[in-house]
Each structure stands twice: as C-alpha cells, then as structure tokens.
C-alpha cells in the first residue's frame, strides 16, 4: 500500500497549502447545504401530527448532537494517533476539535432543553440520554482545561489524548442510552440500517442539514488548524515567506 498521502498529511506546510485550495469550495458547499436544508425544514416540511411546529427544532438539534459525538470520536482517534506515532498534525487536530465539539454539545443540550419544554413539559430531566450528553460536554471541557494547564505542548497533547481515549466509553453509552434505560428521549428516528421513522418530506431536509453541519465542521476545523499551524511553525522559513508576502 502507498503511504505517501499519510506522510503528506503529517506535514503542516503541505496541509496549509492544500487547505487554502479546499476552503473556498467547502464554504460554498456549506452555505448551499445549510440554506437549502434550513429553508426546506422551516418553511416547506409539513408539521408533525403531535408536536406541531416545535419539531422543526430537529433540523438543528439532531445534526448538532451527531456532530458533537463524531467530533469526539475524531478527537480521540487523532489524539491516539498522536500518542502512538508522535504525529504533530494529529495532535493539532485533536486540540482543534475540542472547542468546536464543546460548542456543538452545548448547542445540542440547549436546543434539546428548548424542545423539551413544549414536548415533555420540562426544560431538563435527569434521564440517561441527557445526562450522558452533559458528561460529553464535561469531557470536552476537561480536555481543554488539561491542555491549558500543562505548559509543555508535548506533555499536554499526551495527557489530554489519554483523557479523550478513556472518555470514548461515553459514546456508545450516549448512543444506546435510549435503548438500555427507560428514557423520555425518543429512540433513534434515523438509522443506517433501516428506513427513517418519518416521512420523506421531513427526512430529506434533515439529511441535507446533517451534511451541511458536517461541512461546516470541516470549514471551522480547517480555520482553527491553519491558525494553529502558523502559530507552531512560526520559526520556519515557509511561514516567514508567507507572512512577508502578505504585507
């Protein structure tokens, strides 16, 4: 197998240059997907039989919750890769994932609370799904606090990667919480293996919003990575050349 792509990915300079070319296209794609999905979901999808129009929160809530978990998995995997192969880029990805993931976990929790009020009659209940999502937020915050508290970058990356890997156990707990325990939170409406438990006029916009959120994540991850790369590589010749040209 040809591994050159893997080594290229490990080079901050190469990554900075290639991501400059990707970014504009990703931004356009993100805007197209999000505008289409949100307009479709808010204005054209039919109302839900029992929840009325409050269910339209789903087009934000579900993508945010998906993203919160996917970001955590990415953070743990890249943290692990950094731990094993001492790959600088992987460590950078892990540390850039944390604030983005934390913000989307918070978004999922807040939209869930606002959706819960008209649907369950309560902003918050200590049920398994909600509690495990709150733990996810604390894991993200713990990861960031740990990184900020250790001055040596290598030690910080290693310690926080271990925390991220240990916390990975929470991800299946979130996923299966609605099946394992009796919860107010409904079980999964969309699964990879089955047809969605909602009509097409509702799940098409939901899938478009999901794709839009993932594209948005890629854009903001690239933005953070590029900033971090410049910061950590500021003594190298290529950063100097790049910055001098921009004057």
């Amino acid at each position: 197998m040809n591994w050159t792509w893997f080594h290229k990915l490990g080079s901050p300079k190469w990554f900075y240059e290639i991501s400059s070319r990707w970014l504009p296209w990703l931004v356009i794609l993100t805007i197209l997907l999000l505008v289409t999905g949100v307009v479709w979901g808010l204005a054209f999808a039919p109302a839900e039989r029992f929840q009325g129009n409050s269910y339209r929160i789903i087009f934000i809530h579900v993508p945010a919750a998906f993203l919160a978990q996917a970001t955590y998995v990415l953070m743990a995997i890249t943290g692990g890769v950094g731990l094993i192969w001492r790959m600088k880029m992987a460590e950078l990805v892990a540390s850039c994932c944390a604030p983005i993931g934390a913000s989307f976990t918070l978004l999922a929790l807040l939209t869930g609370a606002i959706w819960g009020k008209p649907t369950w009659g309560a902003w918050w209940v200590w049920d398994a799904r909600l509690t495990s999502m709150l733990i996810l937020l604390f894991l993200y915050l713990g990861f960031m606090a740990l990184q900020a508290s250790i001055d040596n970058m290598k030690t910080a990356a290693r310690a926080s990667a271990v925390l991220a890997l240990v916390g990975l156990v929470n991800i299946p707990i979130i996923k299966y919480s609605v099946d394992w325990w009796f919860t107010l939170h409904q079980t999964a409406s969309i699964k990879l293996t089955e047809k969605p438990a909602m009509p097409a006029e509702m799940y098409y916009p939901l899938f478009i919003c999901l794709a839009g959120f993932y594209c948005f994540f890629t854009v903001v991850l690239l933005l953070r990575l590029r900033t971090e790369i410049l910061h950590r590589e500021h003594k190298t010749g290529w950063v100097k050349a790049l910055m001098s040209n921009k004057r």
Partner: peptide, 22 residues
C-alpha cells in the same frame, strides 16, 4: 410557528450564535 414560535426561533438563534462564534 403554531404556538411554538418562541421555542423554534430561539433554537435557530442560538445555532446562529454558536456558528458565528466558531
């Protein structure tokens, strides 16, 4: 939004804030 305008729009508002922050 039926009787749910405040709930729906506040969610989308928070989403916009989170995205702009990012």
């Amino acid at each position: 939004m039926g009787k749910h305008g405040l709930y729906v729009w506040s969610c989308y508002g928070i989403a916009v804030v989170v995205m702009i922050y990012n």
